[in-house]
Write a protein that binds this DNA or RNA. Sequence first.
DNA 1: CCTACCGATCGGTAGG
DNA 2: CCTACCGATCGGTAGG
Lengths: 212, 212
Amino acid sequence: MSAAAPRSPRRSSGRPRGADSTARREEILATAAQLFSAEGYRGTSMSGVARACGMSQTGLVHYFPTKDDLLQAVMDRRDEIDTAQVRAPAEGRPRGWEFLESLVDLVRHNQGQPGIVRLFTTMAGEAVDPGHPANTWLRRHHRVTADQIRAALAEAAEDGRLAGDAPVGSIVRTVIAAMDGLQIQWLSDPGCPDMAEDFAVLVDALRRRWGG
Amino acid sequence: MSAAAPRSPRRSSGRPRGADSTARREEILATAAQLFSAEGYRGTSMSGVARACGMSQTGLVHYFPTKDDLLQAVMDRRDEIDTAQVRAPAEGRPRGWEFLESLVDLVRHNQGQPGIVRLFTTMAGEAVDPGHPANTWLRRHHRVTADQIRAALAEAAEDGRLAGDAPVGSIVRTVIAAMDGLQIQWLSDPGCPDMAEDFAVLVDALRRRWGG
DNA sequence: CCTACCGATCGGTAGG
DNA sequence: CCTACCGATCGGTAGG
C-alpha cells in the first residue's frame, strides 16, 4: 500500500544474502536444542528460535514448517550424536557385561555435555504425556537403549556369565532408569557429585548379583 | 479505594455465594495439580486453572496471588501426602534395609496414583533448571528422601548389616534415581510393566552386595 | 516451480 | 469475587 515499497529488485531488496542452507539448518538445530533444553518444548517459541538465530520467524518456517518438525529434527540429531558415541569408542562394541560397564564411560562423557543432558531430561519430563509431540521420540530412545542392553545380557548368557533366573527385563529398565534419574539429580543440584561413579556402583551390584 | 466497594455485605450483591474458602483452596489445589501434571508449569495458565475450577482468574488470584504461590502450595501438599504414606504404614518406620524394602511398597502404591507420579515427573523435568520456580522444591524433595535412606543405612550399619566400605552416597543417589527413572518409563509407555518389581530387583542387588 | 527469506499481520491468550 | 482491561507475545500464514 505504501509508496515506500521497494521497487529496485536488482538491489538487496528481497533476501539479504544467499547464505548456505545446510549451514543455516545446522545453526538452527543447535540454537533450537539450546532453547528447548532451557525452556522446554512448550516454553520455546518459534519466534524465539528465529530471534536467537538472527533471522525472521518466517525465515525459520522456511526451514522447519512447524514447531513439531523442528523438534523432531533436533531430537533425531541428538540421537545420531549419541549413537555414534556409544558405538564408536571401540570399533566393535564391548561384549556382555563389558558393554554395561562401557555405559559408565558414556555417563562420564555426558558430564562434559550438560546441554545435551539437559535437553534429554527436559524433553523426557514433558514427553511422558502420550499426546506430547516428543513421546514417540522418548519411547524409541528408550527402546533402542533397552535393545542394546538386552543384547549385551544375551551375550553374557551365551558366555555363561548370567544366572539363568536373572530378571533381564527388570535389569534393563533399572539401568536405564538410573541413567535418567541420576541426570535429574545432577542437573538440579550444582553440588551433586560424579554421576558415573554412582552408576558404576549400580552396574557392579547387578553384575555381582546375576553375573556368572 | 473505590466508592463502588461492596457496602451491603448481607445481600447477594458482590460475590455470588459465600462459598467456604478452605474447601475452595482444596479444590484449587487438586485442580491445579491435575493441570500442572498434564501440561507442566509453563504449559499451565492461571486462567486455565480458574476455568477448570469454575471461577474467574481474578477470583483465583484472591487465593493465590501469583502462579508461583500456587505451584508452591501444590507441591507442598504433594509432599505432605507422600510423607504421610512413607511414615504411616507401620507406626514406627522400618529399620535398616527393611526401610529400603518398604520403598518397594511405596513404588507399588504410586502405581495406583498415576496423577501424582505424573505431577512429580513433569515438574522434575522442568525444575532441573536452577532458575525454575520449582527447583527449590525438587532439591528439598530429593534431600528429604536422601536423608531418610541415609538414616536407614546408618541403622543397618549399627546392626552390623552394612559393609564398612559401602559407598553410601552412591547407593542413596542410585535408589532415588531408579525411582525417578522408572516413573519416566512407566508413564511414557502404557505397556510398561510393574515398576515395583523392577525396583525390588535393584534393592535386592544392593543389599546382597553391601548388606551384612 | 525453486531457494531464501522479508515486513506485517491474523485471531486468540498469557499473567497480572 | 466481578468486569474491564494492559503490554506482549503465541504459532502460523499472507503476498512479494
